[in-house]
């Protein structure tokens, strides 16, 4: 027998959506983006495993080479960089969350957010410099 209880719904105070949006601060967006990037990366994980397995399942090494060859074509280099954005955001914001869990930086959450996003931007520039020449732009 479940011993659950219902969460009491919010009462009164009907707000215009724009007013609700105005209450979202940096941390709210950081939380939403953390969830969105996490779910997208999980979806990518399945895509990744399915794509890499299908060729080997059906035929063999020659088809593995063909599929991987296609995946290193220019459009996929750009897709890799987009994936890198998702992973970098999730990892850096995750570091921020764990720092607060350990008791560091709780009074400076926004500063930590923008500081780590700065680190992310630098890493993105480095990755782009390394990978974009392969995309033959």
């Amino acid at each position: 027998m479940g011993r659950g209880f219902k969460v009491r719904p919010a009462t009164g105070l009907k707000r215009h959506p724009a007013q609700t949006l105005a209450t979202y601060r940096t941390g709210t967006w950081a939380w939403m983006l953390h969830r969105a990037t996490g779910l997208l990366i999980l979806a990518y994980l399945y895509f990744h495993l399915i794509v890499l397995s299908s060729d080997v399942w059906f035929k063999g090494s020659a088809d593995f080479n063909r599929v991987v060859g296609e995946l290193t074509a220019p459009p996929f280099i750009l897709a890799d960089l987009l994936l890198f954005v998702l992973i970098l955001y999730h990892a850096l914001n995750g570091i921020r969350i764990m720092l607060f869990d350990l008791g560091y930086g709780i009074g400076h959450q926004r500063e930590w957010f923008w500081g780590l996003m700065g680190v992310g931007a630098l890493l993105m520039v480095a990755a782009s410099v390394a990978l974009l020449p392969l995309a033959h732009l």
Partner: peptide, 12 residues
């Protein structure tokens, strides 16, 4: 992605 940048990835 970065260790052997630009090298072809094959089954072998």
């Amino acid at each position: 992605h970065f260790m052997h940048l630009g090298a072809r990835i094959t089954y072998r």
